[in-house]
Amino acid sequence: MTILHVPEQHRKPSDEGGLFLRALAWVLLRVVPKASPDYDRHFKEVAYWLVEVDAEGKAEREIGFNTQHEPVFFAPTNRNCGLWTDSDRIFSREQFESRDDFPFDSTWNNLYAQTLQGTRSL
């Protein structure tokens, strides 16, 4: 597995397109169940992601960090599918900075354990 540093673009699909597309996105966002319900509250806090990808570049796990380098949320969990892990995006190792030096596995597992214990809301 490889860990990639992915900068956040702070862009939602509803921010693009004409009036019709924005209206359609607004309706769909309220009707279709969300795959990651906790992401909406914290999405604007994310400055960058560390994404664990497999050999083909498919996202396996992700952690979103704020500007203070604190984890804001992570996925997938039993409640949140994730942004990158729930997409069909294939990451190129040449396009993003590798962060294999970051203790991703222990950080992700610690966040998950805190969630299971109820000491973390995400």
Rank of each mutant, 00 (worst) to 15 (best):
H69N: 10
F104H: 12
R22T: 07
P37T: 01
S106E: 14
A59T: 08
R99G: 05
A23D: 04
Q9S: 05
H69Y: 10
D88H: 08
R93A: 03
V6S: 06
G17C: 02
A47E: 15
D86H: 06
H5A: 06
R22E: 02
F102K: 10
G64H: 00
T77A: 02
V27P: 09
S92R: 09
V32G: 11
D54K: 04
L21D: 03
E56M: 12
N80T: 05
A35Y: 00
V27K: 01
D15L: 11
E94A: 15
G118A: 06
P76D: 05
R41W: 09
R120D: 10
E56H: 13
V32Q: 13
T2G: 04
R99N: 01
D101K: 03
Q68Y: 12
F96T: 05
T119Y: 14
E52R: 14
F74H: 00
K44S: 03
E60A: 00
D54C: 04
H69W: 07
V32N: 09
S121N: 14
V27L: 15
W26L: 11
L24D: 12
S87D: 02
R22V: 11
E56W: 08
E62A: 06
W84P: 02
R89D: 04
P37E: 05
T119P: 14
R11T: 13
P33S: 13
Q114D: 14
G82H: 00
L83F: 10
T77W: 08
F43I: 09
V46T: 08
S106T: 05
E16V: 11
A23C: 10
S121R: 15
D86I: 01
W49L: 04
E70R: 13
D100N: 15
A113M: 13
K12P: 07
P33F: 11
L4C: 04
R30Y: 11
D105H: 12
F91D: 05
R41L: 11
F73D: 00
G64F: 05
W26C: 04
Q68G: 08
C81Q: 14
Q95T: 05
D100W: 08
F73S: 06
L24R: 08
R120K: 12
A35N: 09
C81S: 13
A25S: 11
V46R: 04
I63G: 06
L122T: 06
T85M: 02
F96R: 03
R11L: 15
L19C: 12
T67M: 12
R22W: 09
T119F: 00
L29T: 13
P71K: 04
Q95V: 11
P71A: 15
I3A: 03
L116R: 14
L19V: 14
